[in-house]
Design a binder for these strands. Sequence first.
DNA 1: CTATGGATACAACCCTTGGTTGTGGCCGGG
DNA 2: CCCGGCCACAACCAAGGGTTGTATCCATAG
Lengths: 311, 311
Amino acid sequence: MDLDIVRTFVAAADAGQFQEAAAELAITQQAVSKRIAALERDVGVRLFTRTPRGAELTIDGQAFLPHARELLRVAERAVTSVCTGRRPLRVDMLASRSAASGLMRGFHRAHPEIDLDVVMLFDIEKAVAAIRSGAIDASFRAVAMPGRPLPEDIESVRVLDEPLQLLVGPAHALASARSVTVAQLAGHRIWMPGLAPGTEWTAYYDDLVAEFGLTIEATGPNFGSDALLDTIADTPALATFMGGRTRLVWPAGHGLRRIPVTDPTPVYPHSLLWRRDNPHPALATLRAHLAATAAGHGAAGTWAPDWVIPR
Amino acid sequence: MDLDIVRTFVAAADAGQFQEAAAELAITQQAVSKRIAALERDVGVRLFTRTPRGAELTIDGQAFLPHARELLRVAERAVTSVCTGRRPLRVDMLASRSAASGLMRGFHRAHPEIDLDVVMLFDIEKAVAAIRSGAIDASFRAVAMPGRPLPEDIESVRVLDEPLQLLVGPAHALASARSVTVAQLAGHRIWMPGLAPGTEWTAYYDDLVAEFGLTIEATGPNFGSDALLDTIADTPALATFMGGRTRLVWPAGHGLRRIPVTDPTPVYPHSLLWRRDNPHPALATLRAHLAATAAGHGAAGTWAPDWVIPR
DNA sequence: CTATGGATACAACCCTTGGTTGTGGCCGGG
DNA sequence: CCCGGCCACAACCAAGGGTTGTATCCATAG
């Protein structure tokens, strides 16, 4: 199905006749006739009743019309999403179901008129490069890498500390615990596939390991959260860390448990990064919204690497 | 833009390489390459970075991807909306902003999983024919026409009495009234363009006129509610009737007033009509919903023509 | 270092799609 | 009864889009 044909259908429906629609679209009446005929062949029903003084929608055509308009609207938005000028606010985050997505949902509820696009870049290095180039407008990341300060033109503000939770299967030794201390985790196998060297999130877990003497296995590629959850559920001796604000597609019947970690509670520090001279109007709105709704961070009893930017 | 191209884009993004996407779509890799190139030319930005072992999305491509998926979803719904089998529940009503649309909004809130399509047929005769043929599943109308009973296979139930209101401009003699009695309306010019002979809504106003000795002018074609509202606002001696549940796009600065009518309050009786043997599962859900949320009708102090079906 | 395999891009060819022009049929109004 | 307006059908033509064949690039294995 071609969107030009859909456009033709809408124009013909609005005009009530093919000829006027043809004039609007700068094609001949015969072309409109052929397009409509092709569309009717595609969907398998008659959309217009042709009369000697025009064409009016059939019931099926009436039902189809709003969907056609919606189709054109969505196409419009799709194109503007990659337009260089006046495009939606484009935000990078760690993962589509991470805590940052919760913040963005809140922002969207508060400002439904602002168009948003979410992308997921590899690490903060890529994110900073994308912010500097203007490819994205903002990023939710942990900053900065140890010994690698942010460039001058990038600003950042810490917006959310996400408490880590332990994820275990039903047969795990800690499965029935209401909460566990960091000290209790020493000696347990914690599996986090996909930790890539040189990324800021791997640096975070490296620090966590060094600080509290934990054992984190990063072996094997990451086959996706489904496969990870399956393995965790089936392996009694295995656990993994998960952001406490992560909304999982919870697999039914796996018996997985999320267990808070305490003494101290490791928190993953999300900061908002943006380029100082980025003129996107929605960026200021986002910053104001986050400042207004900022959750507590750097709270007592929590731990984060000392290289993260201060609160 | 062709939806086949969008489909190709999504397939390539999912596969991470053109070759596999080509195999899925049963075309050659070269065709995929050309389609993607055409799409990139259309939107004006690069969507993939080609590597020797595949193609991965650029940031723009990532931003575009969810829009592309949405586009395909909407297209799918558009097609199923005119599919004969398992299509959305198709409901006819008097006007898109009439009281019936409020009922349907409530139904949609209660059952957001049920797809709906709204159409507006000419009159009850057309609606009954469409219901019998299966072209639509239900209709909100005033039934039945005087002396013209519903066919055997059509059922109906009165679901909502909509009180009429008087709509006047700021300079009208009744503009400052909190409410008016029917008796007060005698002698005032009431203008309702577009009252077509033989329709059930014209029959309603004919009865109203006969019962209370009103003056309703139906002269002139209906140029749409905007034009009607403009005229009403500008003409001191002119008023019109409007459904009390109608949600107008209220023109700013016109000073229009909506005035309740009493002694008695004329109500427009909306009934739900459907074919007894219509198997659409959502139809039963709609009937149950309307039965559960039924607003009062046939209340004391209201008037409706005696030919409408009993409550 | 070289050969190989797998991936994309480019070129040539050809068919099909889709546009235009020309024409006929239908119905309502003067 | 004729005329005018509108849509459908046929013929023609150009261009888009698919296929086959080939070049290029890079990672990996030998």
